[in-house]
């Protein structure tokens, strides 16, 4: 029978062993040097299921230190069930400080949203990515998409966007709208809504992306050009909330959640980013992201 001592082993700081951390760190540096390029990495199994944020976790755990303050969000919410689970896990293995306050965090792990509040050069945002390959919808084999990236052969992608326009009158990509990074690589921004996409462009913070199941990581360094794919005559546009208002704040220049009421007919809208909503309610000043789309909305407002 096994000795008891075997069952009492404690885990390393930040769970992952140092060998793997080093590997992830080396690859993160390469990812920064080649913005938008997907670096393959070992992606060891975690006690969290594949598809539930393992890639984000690998990055967060390779980055985090004793002085970090962690914010963990899922669909814009700090209190979403999976965010709670992941936050607990990181907290348990690092004893780090955690927060809901966007401004206070040094490290933010997110699924499917960028905060409404603008991030600073002291902050790193880590995205959980389900499908890192923006070309997967047009080419199913990995060795082929890799070649397409190598040769900047993006004709198939442009064709698909064009076909969508011909068929439906618009590029129908919703969340995860493909972007061109630094004029070289087409990149999937992870399934963030189009509302968030312009905030990747020329940001102050570092954006890092981890796709655990597909074993890829990539990066957008600060002050890097990130442009949504668009045509001369068919422009990228963000989601439209101009006819609705947040039920709690009356504000509508933010990404909204749509909630059906119990009667199944009436709908109410609320600001999606839970910390931003809290701050609006409590009338705390927030430095919101600005970009040409949001600025236009604010101008129309006046």
């Amino acid at each position: 029978m096994i000795e008891n001592i075997k069952f009492n082993s404690s885990y390393n700081f930040a769970f992952i062993d140092e060998t793997t951390k080093k590997e992830i760190r080396r690859k993160l540096l390469k990812a920064i040097c080649i913005p938008g390029y997907q670096v393959p990495y070992s992606s060891p199994e975690m006690p969290i299921a594949r598809g539930w944020g393992t890639g984000g976790l690998h990055l967060t755990l390779a980055l985090i230190g004793k002085t970090d303050t962690l914010k963990m969000i899922d669909q814009g919410s700090d209190a979403s069930v999976n965010a709670c689970n992941l936050r607990d896990f990181v907290q348990l293995t690092t004893n780090c400080k955690t927060t809901y306050d966007t401004n206070e965090a040094t490290l933010i792990q997110t699924r499917h949203r960028i905060t409404e509040e603008k991030l600073t050069d002291k902050q790193i945002m880590v995205f959980q990515v389900p499908q890192p390959e923006p070309l997967r919808r047009v080419e199913r084999y990995e060795y082929k998409t890799r070649q397409m990236h190598a040769e900047s052969d993006y004709a198939k992608m442009w064709l698909t966007l064009y076909e969508a326009f011909v068929k439906w009158g618009d590029v129908m990509h919703g969340a995860g709208y493909p972007v061109m990074v630094n004029g070289r690589y087409i990149m999937s921004p992870s399934p963030i809504p189009r509302w968030d996409v312009p905030n990747l462009n020329m940001a102050d913070c570092i954006y890092l992306f981890g796709a655990g199941r597909e074993k890829r990581l990539y990066a957008v360094p600060p002050h890097t050009r990130v442009e949504p794919l668009e045509f001369e005559d068919v422009k990228f546009h963000i989601e439209n909330f101009k006819d609705v208002k947040c039920e709690s704040t009356g504000y509508n220049i933010a990404y909204m959640d749509e909630m059906y009421q119990d009667d199944g007919i009436t709908k109410k809208f609320y600001i999606n980013d839970s910390n931003f909503l809290d701050k609006m309610i409590e009338k705390i000043a927030v430095n919101q992201h600005s970009n040409k789309y949001i600025n236009q909305l604010k101008k129309n407002e006046q």
């Binding site: 760190r25 920064i32 980055l63 985090i64 050069d121 570092i206």
Partner: peptide, 13 residues
């Protein structure tokens, strides 16, 4: 960890 974060910061900027 601490040194990596500084290298990352310098490489990013």
């Amino acid at each position: 960890q601490e040194h990596f974060r500084l290298i990352l910061d310098s490489m990013s900027r």
